[in-house]
Amino acid sequence: MTTATKDTPLSVLLIPASVIGCLMVLSAVLMLGISVLDSFPGWTGLTLEHYRDFFENRFLLQAGLRTISLATVVTLICLLLGYPVAWFLALGRSKIAHLVFLAVLTPLIVSIVVRMFGWTILLGNEGLLNKVMVGLGIVSAPVQMMRSFWTVAIGLIHIFLPFMILSLTSTLGRIDPSLAEAAATLGSRPVRSFLQIILPLSAQGIATGSIIVFCLTTGVYLTPLWLGRGNVTVLATAIQQQILETGDWPTGAASAMLLTFFTLLLVAGYSVLIRRLGRR
């Protein structure tokens, strides 16, 4: 094997990306380091105290639990809304399916700041939804919708639904339609054949989509900041406050590491699951 490109030295191929990769790893190592120092800056010893502090600090613990429930809610709703759309996209070859596909991709290209602003116009006290509800007499006075858990959830669903749909569509598109047909010919009821054939075959897409949405949601910073405006504290905003406002680097770093470990566990569990599904 002495071809020209095989001669391209490995160092030339790897050094540029490795420099950037090392910065990423260095960031994580730095966080890990700070989290076990007794104080920072100016440390005198190592300790695991700050990991205990996280669980004893009501503010951080609540932010952590809120982050997990937010990620769970967002992932489940993305899955429930995304699956029928992916189904429609995977099976349809019509003009309408193409337009729906464009509609799914459009938000990906529009800045998140623009979309956050759009939700403010829709859900604000003076917003369209409040005007419609007051106009129809459903409510007598505008309802305070901004700065709530559910508004942040809606904003996040809007951001991550396209990711879920793309992930599901790619798996659903690979399923041979004749399988469901065969089941129907053999007398299987459609709902049953969906549950027993299509759903298991799309499990990989469901797993990939869910892990992407869940992990990205646990790390989001802008949406809770913008739509929550200080009222919806998630772990990302809590860590930022702990470190930059309170100046408590070690506890903030410990919280950040707990978030990273949690994400790593999820991704590891996911790859085991995928390998299992692949073997079947």
Binding site: L81, G82, P84, V85, W87, F88, L91, G92, R93, V100, A103, V104, T106, P107, V110, V114, R115, G118, W119, I121, L122, H158, L161, P162, P177, S178, L179, A180, E181, A184, P190, V191, S193, F194, I198
Partner: peptide, 30 residues
């Protein structure tokens, strides 16, 4: 195509509604 058609019409209508709602949901705030 055929597996979609093999679903009962109630499900297909429900599916179309969800697709419509999702499209509005995705585009309206923009």
């Amino acid at each position: 195509m055929d597996s979609a058609r093999s679903l009962p019409s109630v499900w297909r209508i429900l599916n179309a509604w969800i697709v419509g709602i999702v499209v509005v949901f995705l585009l309206l705030p923009i």
